[in-house]
């Protein structure tokens, strides 16, 4: 297992504080910062208590006075509970607040739908000026935190909760730029987040065994989407499949579908959480399998779609 991305964020931020006195970390008692981290951060860390709307408001007020707040909360509370403060106090004013949202997607696992965030990407990517990223691992998290210091406007970073299996080496992660993890021509698998990316890579291997050349594109920046890279990859492909830990509507699948429909119409299939709240109990990996966000499901989707295309002769 690699390092948990939320811990990578915390440690990276701590390493930046000395050189960036304008940065302040505001917390909502998430427990991500243990006493030793709080002590290391000194007065550049404040626990404001369990009040997410208040967190966003105070962060906006401080950002309006020249500070760069990194705010810690869980994705479920950031985007649903505090959405109006994000919209009006932060996005409307184009303020450089960095919303560091842990427990993204199904990462809360057995804690259930109250703590899962399967709508955050959809909800935030429609806000003007908002940047929305989903780092795939600790390396990407550190890169995005460092890059955020020179990013104008607000940023939402969706983080997992626990370590995920390591990924193969990839091009250096840059906010706004898709990462081609595997080239290919017949099919494009577009994904974001650790487990969807792992599933896509495994599915691409299996599909190669069936003679289907499959590209894997990590669209870690859901907004602004790297439409150029997406269209380049999709142009020669018969099919694009989006894979994400998110309800199927409005998230990465929505963003990809919109971009392709406007610029390079291609058949798109979306794989994500079915249209329901998670009633199954289990950890993140169990739930992903239970709800079929898996490599096997991707292989089936691709083969079924390509078979149909072959049978009817068009795509």
């Amino acid at each position: 297992m690699s390092r948990a991305v939320r811990e990578a964020y915390r440690d990276c931020l701590l390493s930046l504080l000395d050189r960036h006195p304008e940065v302040i970390c505001l917390d909502t008692d998430t427990g991500l910062f243990r006493p030793e981290h709080v002590s290391a951060a000194g007065d550049q860390y404040l626990n404001l208590g369990i009040a997410e709307h208040n967190l966003m408001g105070i962060a906006a007020g401080m950002a309006a006075c020249g500070r760069t707040p990194f705010v810690n909360t869980m994705a479920a509370f950031a985007t649903s509970r505090a959405l109006e403060a994000i919209k009006i106090d932060i996005a409307y004013n184009r303020l450089p607040v960095r919303i560091m949202a842990t427990h993204g997607g199904l990462a809360a696992g057995h804690l259930g739908p109250t703590h899962q965030a399967l709508e955050d990407l959809a909800v935030l990517r429609v806000l003007p000026g908002m940047t929305v990223v989903v780092p795939v691992d600790a390396t990407a998290t550190e890169a995005f935190v460092a890059q955020s210091l020179s990013l104008p406007g607000p940023l939402y970073v969706r983080l997992d909760r626990k370590p995920s299996p390591p990924l193969p080496p990839a091009p250096a992660p840059v906010i706004g730029r898709a990462q081609t993890l595997r080239p290919g021509g017949d099919v494009v698998l577009a994904c974001c987040g650790p487990y969807p990316t792992l599933a896509c890579l495994a599915a691409a291997d299996t599909l190669a065994g069936h003679g289907i050349e499959t590209a894997v594109l990590n669209l870690h920046t859901v907004r602004p989407l790297d439409t150029e890279a997406l269209i380049d990859a999709a142009r020669a492909a018969a099919l694009v499949v989006t894979v994400e830990e998110h309800w199927c509507g409005g998230g990465l699948g929505g963003a990809v579908t919109e971009a392709l429909a406007e610029a390079a119409p291609t058949k798109v299939l979306r794989l994500g959480m079915p249209d329901q709240f998670a009633d199954a109990v289990g950890n993140q990996e169990y739930l992903l399998t239970y709800y079929d966000i898996t490599a096997e499901r991707i292989v089936t989707m691709v083969r079924t779609a390509l078979d149909a295309t072959a049978r009817f002769g068009t795509h």
């Binding site: 208040n54 408001g57 105070i58 962060a59 906006a60 007020g61 401080m62 309006a64 106090d89």
Partner: peptide
């Protein structure tokens, strides 16, 4: 809350 942010900053 915004004013708290001003005062804190």
């Amino acid at each position: 809350a915004l004013s708290c942010g001003f005062a804190l900053a």
